[in-house]
Simulated assay, not measured.
Amino acid sequence: MTTPDDGQVRTAHLVASVLLGYPDERMYGELPILAEAVAGLPRGEVRARLESFLGHCAATPRSDLAAHYVATFDLKRRCCPYLTYYAYGDTRKRGAALLRFKHAFREAGFELADGELPDHLSVVCELSGRGAVRQARRLMTENRAGLELLRTALEAESSPYADVVAAVLATLPAAGPRQLEAALRLAAQGPPAEEVGLEPYAVMEAGR
C-alpha cells in the first residue's frame, strides 16, 4: 500500500470536505469530478473508502441520502461532526478549544464564513484541501480521539459516512497509545457537562 503524499492528502481531504457536507444537488452534480479525483489517488485504504462512499452515492437517491444525513449528524449527538464536542461537550472550555482552530485558519490565511464553526470535520478538511495540509493535520491529530469516536459511532449506525471518516483517519499518522487511551476514556465517559452556574456552548450553534 502506498502512503499518500501531501498533494494526494490535499486531494483526499478536499473530496472528503464535499462528501461530508449536506448532500444537495450541487454535490450530486460533482460526483463525476470527485470520482475522477479519487481515481488518481494511490491504491490503499483512503482511495478504497472514498470509492465505497461514492459508489453508495451513485446508487442512492439524493433525498434518501439527505434524510440519512439529517438523521445521523443533526439528530444523533454521538455522531457529532464538531471535533471539539467530544472532549469538551457544551462547556465554556470548548470555546477556548475553538480558538485554536480559528487561529490555525488565520495562520493559513483563511477566514470562516459568518456563523460557521471551525471544528466541523468538513471545514477542517476543506482547510487542508485549500493547501493548509500541515495546519489541518495538526488539528485532526490533536482531536484524534474525537475522530475515532465519530467513526465508531457511524459504524455502529451502519452509516456509509463511516467510510469517509475512516478515509480521513487513514491520512493521519497511526494512533499512539495515548490517543487510543483518550478515545477509550471519551467513549466511556462521554462529553463533559457544563459546570454549575456557567452557560453552555451550543454544539449545533451554526449550520453547515
Rank of each mutant, 00 (worst) to 15 (best):
C80K: 00
E30W: 03
Y161F: 09
T84S: 14
R43S: 12
A202P: 05
Q8G: 08
R106P: 01
D90F: 00
G21A: 14
A39C: 07
T72E: 05
L31Y: 00
A136N: 04
S158I: 08
G190S: 10
L198I: 00
R185D: 13
R94H: 11
V70M: 07
R43C: 00
L14G: 12
V46Y: 02
A39G: 06
Y28P: 05
G190K: 08
L54E: 08
A67H: 11
A35N: 09
R151G: 08
E205P: 01
G131A: 03
E116S: 01
D24W: 04
V18A: 14
T141W: 01
A193H: 12
V46M: 01
D114C: 04
D24N: 14
G89E: 11
I33W: 04
A16N: 04
H120C: 02
F53T: 10
A193I: 07
D163I: 06
R138C: 06
V168L: 05
L149R: 15
D163Q: 10
A193G: 10
D163Y: 05
T3N: 06
A206K: 12
H120L: 08
A48L: 03
E181G: 03
R178S: 12
V46E: 02
G7F: 04
C79L: 04
A174V: 15
Y22W: 08
M204I: 00
D74Y: 04
A167N: 07
G129I: 07
R144W: 04
K102D: 11
E155I: 14
A67V: 08
L75M: 15
L54Y: 02
G40W: 12
G7D: 13
R134F: 00
R130I: 03
G44D: 02
A145G: 10
V123R: 07
T3D: 10
V168M: 06
K102I: 14
T141P: 00
A145I: 11
A202F: 04
R137W: 00
L150A: 11
T141G: 03
G7M: 02
T3I: 13
A193E: 15
A153H: 12
Y85V: 09
H56L: 06
G146F: 06
H68W: 00
L180A: 13
H13S: 06
D163K: 03
T72L: 06
L139N: 07
F105M: 09
L14V: 00
V123Y: 03
D163L: 04
M204A: 13
L127T: 08
A87K: 14
L34Y: 05
Y28S: 06
S122C: 12
A206M: 00
A175C: 09
T11C: 08
L169I: 12
Y69N: 09
E199V: 13
L154F: 01
A108H: 02
R130L: 11
D6K: 10
H68Q: 15
G29Q: 07
G207P: 00
L169G: 14
C125L: 10
E195I: 09
A97P: 05
A48W: 01
H120R: 07
P177Y: 04
A96N: 11
L186E: 13
L31T: 14
A132M: 05
R151S: 13
A66R: 10
G109T: 12
L172P: 12
A183S: 14
P118G: 07
A206F: 02
A193R: 15
P42H: 08
R185T: 15
